[in-house]
Design a protein around this nucleic acid. Structure first.
Lengths: 130, 130
DNA sequence: GCTTTCCTTGACCTCGGCGTCAACGTTTAC
DNA sequence: GTAAACGTTGACGCCGAGGTCAAGGAAAGC
């Protein structure tokens, strides 16, 4: 299959696929005319990349998963390196959740203060006008 | 006060202050020699910018607060525009929290599956080795 | 006077993940 | 046969918030 078909089937663009190749994530075979030629294996690789990206992984963080698939495992997370990335990511997400919670709290506090200072009678905090 | 003193007192850099000026957030007076000259009012402006940035505001989002201060109010959130930004930000943060919660859940699920597939006996999920 | 430090402007660099355009070759449809 | 639609590489653009030079003036300490 050629690049635009793989792009369509994975829901991405040809440009992205070439970019992944430039990053060493994807290795495409070539047809006689020089066109890239992809197989089902590549389809799975790209799907793995896109799935992980959707969860917030950087391209670099998808690397262990891709290499795991290329090593012959049937899922990208069958390797220790991938699992480490999961764990690192989980720690990151937890830290982010905590920080965001703090941010939310300080936003609420600031908003409350500001509304209390506002002389606008239509925005009295006791009533919900929205 | 000159630029590096304001930078020191606000905990940022001279480059950042010049950048804020280029963005129209800060207007510095000039001494006879062409040096920027800042007063206490500017100190408060910069403090407001940095405080909001720390909560995740973009420079552009701090603009209403800065203009509110410049309009003579004693806090940057005494104006309706600022309050709107608070509310927008809160909505954004809530959306992000929800997405991040989903991400966390799917990460946990993936990690659980991967560990279940792992043949490593030192990583049995029933025991906490950390 | 001399050196070091601070100030000025201008311009390019960084990072991630591609989008977009250019200039050219190939395949496909009619 | 020829035009449209695909493919190739290369290179620059974008976003945000500055960092980092470079080349020059001003100020401050000795």
């Amino acid at each position: 299959m050629r690049i635009s078909e793989l792009a369509k089937r994975t829901g991405t663009t040809a440009r992205a696929l070439r970019f992944y190749e430039a990053q060493g994530l994807l290795e495409a075979g070539r047809s006689a005319n020089g066109y890239r030629d992809y197989g089902e294996r590549d389809h799975r690789l790209v799907t793995e990349i896109l799935t992980l990206q959707a969860i917030g992984f950087s391209l670099d963080e998808t690397r262990p998963f891709v290499e795991c698939l290329r090593a012959g495992h049937d899922t990208g997370d069958s390797c220790a390196d991938s699992i480490e990335v999961y764990e690192r990511k989980l720690t990151e997400v937890d830290a982010l959740l905590e920080r965001l919670g703090d941010v939310r709290a300080s936003l609420l506090a600031k908003l409350g203060d500001a509304l209390a200072k506002q002389p606008d009678p239509c925005r009295v905090p006791s009533a919900g006008t929205e």
